[in-house]
Design a protein around this nucleic acid. Structure first.
Lengths: 115, 115
DNA sequence: ACCGATATATGCGTTACACATATATGTGCG
DNA sequence: CGCACATATATGTGTAACGCATATATCGGT
């Protein structure tokens, strides 16, 4: 597990769509799986449950995230936290997404106005 | 082939990373495969050749792109063009990418400044 | 006690992936 | 011309990830 913690974060890009959704949710704070799906829905995205829980296992193995105990309010929930390295990967992917978005704007796929 | 041309473009999101790279390149003008790889490199992205040519076949089947003849300057090159529907899918994905980028900014993964 | 929503997990068949290899043609240069 | 190297497309192969379905269990409200 986590055998590549020292690789430069950018070497993992592009991330799978689900993977970034997970890291993005956890960037705000610790979350359990089902909650991550709800976060994604709030952003207008859909994550399949099977895809999610397998992604959580995968990202744990890579040590981009780590288990952060059970929720005291509902002990079915096992929540996760971003690791330091996971945060770096998330930032790298966010930067990539931003430059892609700008490229899309230059390509006429988005209105010039911007935010 | 292309049996789902009438499905709302957003129903295909999120796109695979390669797929958007292809659509983005073609948004600027007709391109042949190898050129699409070079475009991606100019943006700092890497596309595997095997992944690219299979993606081109796939996107042709879906009619998001269509063959646009051979390059008169080098007849090895078979170039592709975006279809109307492919453009709509590309716009939808670009919009999704933009809102994701903004979510990443809110989550502290990107500097506030932007613009 | 019951029922729908929440929560995690895995089986399964299909698709997409990275990496390697194959084949052929264009380009520059001595 | 001849030859090397870059360009260009394509596919074989094993592995990883995917969507969809199903399983199991607990929580919250009535």
């Amino acid at each position: 597990m986590g055998m590549d913690r020292r690789r430069p974060p950018e070497s993992h890009l592009p991330l799978r769509p689900v993977e970034f959704q997970v890291l993005l949710s956890l960037a705000t704070g610790d979350r359990h799986g089902y909650r991550i799906i709800q976060d994604a829905e709030d952003r207008g995205e859909r994550i399949d449950v099977g895809t999610l829980y397998r992604a959580l296992a995968r990202l744990s193995d890579r040590e981009w995230i780590r288990p952060a105990g059970r929720d005291p309010e509902d002990d079915r929930r096992n929540s996760y936290a971003l690791t330091e390295y996971g945060l770096e990967v998330a930032r790298a992917e966010a930067a990539r997404l931003e430059s892609l978005t700008q490229a899309a704007r230059r390509g006429g796929l988005l209105p010039e106005v911007a935010r």
